[in-house]
Design a protein around this nucleic acid. Structure first.
Lengths: 123, 123
DNA sequence: TGCGAAGTTTACGTTTGCGTAAAGGTAAGG
DNA sequence: CCTTACCTTTACGCAAACGTAAACTTCGCA
């Protein structure tokens, strides 16, 4: 059986994802993640860990913390508020943005191929 | 014959790309673009226009202006300095970053599909 | 029980990417 | 010439995303 860790300290996660504890606390200030407390110390569970992954993914794509919060809030809102229509709209908007990024990436990767070929041809 | 415009004012480009003139001047301050001058006024040619497109593409992907400058400088350096090896390294690094972003995008798009399906199933 | 490592809050500092006046110069039409 | 639209430089302002320092507290263990 592979033992799955279920509890993490702030520095556990910081080390794992190569960021600082300060950043994680900052995400908490901005309400993107809300670990439980044991006394005064922060305790992160697997759900928190996944959230952090989502945050970092969003960051790599250039989204602001506010945008990432919006995306994260999409999950966890499922059904409750009957804002389904609004959620679907948000998803559409986000999807368009991601598709644009896809185009941009493909364009740049192609350009890199061309440039690399040129450089290699240069003997 | 389709007439290709070959000269643009700063507000021409600003309008075309939906940004402010201030931004374009800022990119110039940061050495990402260097239009010629007619007297005191900036004149942009097609090459400058393409550069601006590259800048905006980079921005949509979350690159900093400094990183975009690095990427842009890849072009235009071809061959001259015999830094070919260094250039190929840079391309590799950038390519890895773009591939990571590709993964991130695909992950999120898939998540959106799942979420959308759930919302629609909710009757 | 007394370290040392790690955690906590508070708060000011820094960088990036422009926004936004202020104060004027320039080009073209009437 | 004069107005109007657009351009210029200079410079301070500001929000976002942390960095960093200060000044404790808490936990594990020797």
């Amino acid at each position: 059986m592979t033992e799955e860790k279920t509890e993490y300290s702030i520095s556990d996660l910081a080390k794992e994802f190569g960021i600082t504890s300060r950043s994680i606390r900052h995400y908490e200030d901005e309400k993107l993640i809300t670990p439980t407390r044991r006394g005064v110390h922060r305790i992160y569970n697997n759900r928190d860990r996944v959230r952090l992954q989502l945050i970092l993914r969003g960051k790599r794509l250039g989204f602001s913390l506010a945008e990432i919060k919006e995306i994260i809030d999409l999950y966890g809102m499922e059904g409750e508020e009957k804002q389904t229509k609004r959620l679907l709209e948000l998803i559409t908007v986000r999807r368009e943005s991601l598709n644009q990024q896809l185009k941009d990436i493909k364009y740049l990767l192609k350009e890199f191929d061309v440039l690399e070929a040129k450089l290699n041809a240069e003997k």
